[in-house]
């Protein structure tokens, strides 16, 4: 298992953003759904070793991130796209992706080819030498995805990766997620249930810091049969599960 959590919590002062999450994930694409404030981003930040958990068990890629050496080893094999990707406006696309690759401690001789592959994978080859300040929001999102995948991570965490992408780019991105999921654990937080239906093997639905549903996209769709609100089966399943826990 690449991700193992048991009773994982994360509090910010009195508020529990993550309130006891159990996960056991191997290779594949895992979709994380939930309303705003459900705890998806906090969970991804804990899994990305950005912030430590408040309590509970956490093992990533078979290692305990509480230890410095093990955390460093996890980070070498990790790809993380934050919800708000900060970037250096004066860097070009390849300079930014290269910078992150070097900070991921990739061997320098491997970096140019890995950067080229990542930039091509996200369809930014024609803007490779453009300054980041000149790119659109969707392009910047793709730069963020490129830096996340440049080291061919074994654990890839993507927070709202398709925000700002046009429909064609979203379709291409789903293909990329599926390819990555063949050998890595990909966890993608999103509001777009169609992304989950098209690319994810499994899906978790969070509400108030808890995982209130875990299963396949088909199983989530089935929960909404005849009851849920929404235009698509997954949307109906999503709203049915949330309505159920609120009553």
């Amino acid at each position: 298992m690449n991700v193992e959590t048991s009773g994982l919590t994360r509090s910010f002062r009195r508020r529990k953003a993550v309130a006891g999450v159990d996960l056991a994930l191997g290779a594949g694409v895992y979709g994380l759904l939930g309303p705003n404030g459900a705890g998806k981003t906090s969970l991804l930040r804990v899994l990305g070793t950005v912030i430590p958990p408040s309590s509970g068990e956490l093992r990533l890629l078979g290692r305990d991130p509480a230890g410095h050496a093990e955390r460093r080893e996890i980070r070498r094999r990790l790809g993380y796209l934050p919800q708000d990707l900060g970037y250096y406006a004066g860097f070009t696309v390849v300079e930014f992706v290269e910078y992150i690759a070097l900070l991921k401690e990739m061997p320098r001789q491997r970096v140019p080819r890995a950067v080229a592959a990542a930039v091509e994978d996200v369809g930014l080859g024609d803007r490779a030498r453009s300054k980041l300040r000149t790119l659109s929001g969707g392009m910047l999102r793709r730069v963020g995805i490129a830096q996340a995948i440049v080291n061919e991570p074994e654990l890839l965490l993507l927070d709202e990766p398709t925000a700002g992408l046009d429909p064609e780019q979203r379709v291409q991105f789903r293909g990329l997620m599926r390819r990555m999921g063949e050998r890595a654990t990909v966890i993608v937080s999103t509001h777009l249930v169609e992304d989950v239906g098209a690319a994810c093997d499994r899906v978790g639905l969070m509400s108030d810091g808890r995982l209130v549903f875990t299963g396949t996209p088909d199983e989530l769709s089935a929960r909404g049969a005849g009851t849920g609100v929404g235009d698509a089966p997954l949307e109906r399943g999503y709203s049915a599960v949330l309505a159920e826990i609120r009553t």
Partner: peptide
Amino acid sequence: DPAYELTRSLPV
């Protein structure tokens, strides 16, 4: 550092 959140997840 605009990429501060990202750099918190990097080995360096």
